[in-house]
């Protein structure tokens, strides 16, 4: 009886501690299964990869319905705003992508939405770049300006112009005068890429630390 009682208790999901213990164990087994690919490709990894894709897709369907389509489409129709039915007709047009004969119908809706976003590009360009262009006119000397600021602004102007000249393809950079700035621009770009790489390493390490933290902390409880 005791054994059955204990087994029953282990599946008592009304108790959040029991459910949490299950969650930690499922997550730990899944984590180790995914990491097994680091040794070599194997069927366990493939299985868990498919489980993840399935669960993530199922979750997306649930969220899309409960947080968008139900309150903003279904509830509107059922409260009398019948014209929302037209949205379903528009939405269904996407699915003609799977029909060889009528695929062009899907392009009507894709085209309209692409056009919509393209039309907003002009406003977006202005909103994004006016401040950036304005901020690019930095003084290199001025009354009471500290030397450090002057130097920083000088570095900024040289790097900006050099990098922009690197992307200037309207004529061939043949002579020394026209070939020097792009060359400097390439050096500046490499320097920036180095900085980007440094940040990328930090990003990737953070994600890994997150998982090791879970395994050692929430699962094995050996974190200080």
């Amino acid at each position: 009886m005791n054994i059955f009682h204990n087994i029953g208790h282990s599946f008592n999901f009304a108790n959040s501690t029991v459910a949490n213990t299950w969650m930690v164990w499922i997550a730990a087994i899944g984590t180790l299964a995914i990491y097994s690919v680091l040794y070599k490709e194997n069927p366990v990894y493939r299985l868990f990869e498919h489980i993840f894709i399935g669960a993530a897709s199922g979750y997306s369907v649930f969220v899309t319905w409960t947080q968008i389509l139900k309150p903003m489409w279904w509830d509107k129709i059922t409260s009398g705003e019948a014209y929302w039915v037209f949205a379903l007709v528009g939405g269904a047009m996407f699915y003609f992508i799977y029909s060889k004969k009528h695929v062009w119908i899907s392009r009507i809706i894709f085209g309209t939405l692409l056009g919509l976003v393209s039309g907003a590009a002009f406003k977006g360009f202005a909103g994004l770049n006016v401040d950036r262009i304005h901020a690019s006119f930095k003084p290199i000397a001025g009354h009471g300006m500290p030397l450090s600021e002057s130097l920083n602004n000088l570095v900024f102007i040289i790097v900006l112009l050099a990098v922009m000249s690197y992307f200037f393809f309207s004529f061939e950079h043949k002579n020394r005068v026209t070939s020097m700035p792009p060359k400097l621009g390439r050096w500046c770009l490499m320097f920036a890429f180095g900085a980007m790489f440094g940040s990328t390493v930090m990003a990737r390490m953070s994600l890994l630390i997150g998982r090791v933290y879970f395994l050692l902390g929430e699962w094995l409880h050996i974190i200080r």
Binding site: W22, G30, I34, A55, L207, L208, F214
Partner: peptide, 20 residues
């Protein structure tokens, strides 16, 4: 919560962490 935390969250973050 168990399925979300144990599968979606755990496997998703592990997949991306392998890039490390």
């Amino acid at each position: 919560d168990m399925l979300f935390g144990g599968i979606v969250s755990a496997l998703g973050s592990t997949m991306f962490s392998t890039i490390g």
